[in-house]
Simulated scan of single mutants.
Amino acid sequence: MALIAAGALGWVIYHYAYDHFTQAAADQRPPKPVNINDVIKATVTALTLIGAVLAGIYAYRKQQLTEGDAHRADASQLAERYTTAADQLGHDKPAVRLAGVYALARLADDWKEQRQVCIDVLCAYLRMPYEPDPSLPGHKEGEREVRHTIIRVIRDHLLKPQARNSWSACDLDFTGAIFDGCDLSLSHFHGKVSFGDATFSGGTVSFGDATFSGGTVSFGGATLSGSTVHFGGGTTGFGAARFNGATFEWGPLPVPAGA
């Protein structure tokens, strides 16, 4: 069919070119006969140009289909990695949960379109019930290390806001989470950050030299009982911070001026 179509197109172009050259020859004084070689050359040239255009369109379309297939394959692979990492986070063994933390962090770096979703899962893990005291019911072996690893991973992605894999512009929801010590110093928080109803129950929580700008940070309803929370150094950008309803059971929290 392609050969038939090409032949028919060539026949039409040939007759069109022949008529054109015939008219041009007739308009000359004195009139000259039509040069068949010129007609054939014009026909071949026109067919070559049309073939080149069609070949370019075909190549472009093929490239689009190939890129589409590759994108779908990448998306499918990323979705599988997400499912695997999420399953690891729910595992009984702490070593497997730790592997899930790092796998989900790497996935957030590679999957920019769903980076916020991966971060939400890590934050949601910190919001789950947690008993840090080994002598009390509900305590899970290795859980403290898993949670502190999540916090370290998040903090590592907040240190350089201009980096390609920075999480500084993402939202962080720690609502109701229990912190028994963590280091978020030097972090850059540019999105919405919530420590609302969070409990700081032990250890040292450091926000030293952290930057809160471009978003909002809330400590509303947070409870500080037995934990030292540090906002020293060059902590900046507290104009959008809210501490309404926070409870300080052992002394006041050192909040920067203007907070």
Rank of each mutant, 00 (worst) to 15 (best):
R106L: 12
L107A: 05
L107E: 09
A108S: 14
D109W: 00
D109G: 04
W111H: 14
K112E: 13
E113F: 12
E113S: 15
E113Y: 02
R115H: 05
R115D: 00
R115C: 11
Q116P: 07
Q116F: 03
V117E: 14
V117T: 15
V117K: 13
C118E: 08
C118M: 08
I119F: 06
D120H: 04
V121T: 15
V121S: 08
V121N: 05
L122V: 05
A124R: 15
A124T: 11
Y125K: 13
R127K: 15
R127L: 06
P129N: 04
P132K: 04
P132Y: 04
P132T: 05
D133P: 14
P134T: 02
L136M: 13
G138R: 03
G138E: 03
K140V: 13
K140G: 03
E141C: 00
G142I: 00
R144W: 08
R144H: 08
I150A: 07
I150L: 09
R152F: 01
V153M: 06
V153R: 10
R155A: 08
D156G: 14
D156K: 10
H157Q: 11
H157P: 09
L159E: 07
K160F: 08
P161I: 01
P161C: 02
A163T: 01
A163Y: 02
R164Q: 13
N165L: 06
S166A: 15
S166Y: 08
S166V: 10
W167L: 12
W167G: 03
S168C: 10
A169G: 11
C170E: 14
C170Y: 09
D171S: 13
L172W: 06
L172K: 11
D173Y: 12
F174Y: 09
F174R: 12
G176S: 07
F179I: 12
D180C: 11
C182V: 12
D183F: 07
D183K: 08
L184A: 09
S187R: 02
S187H: 06
S187Q: 02
H188Q: 08
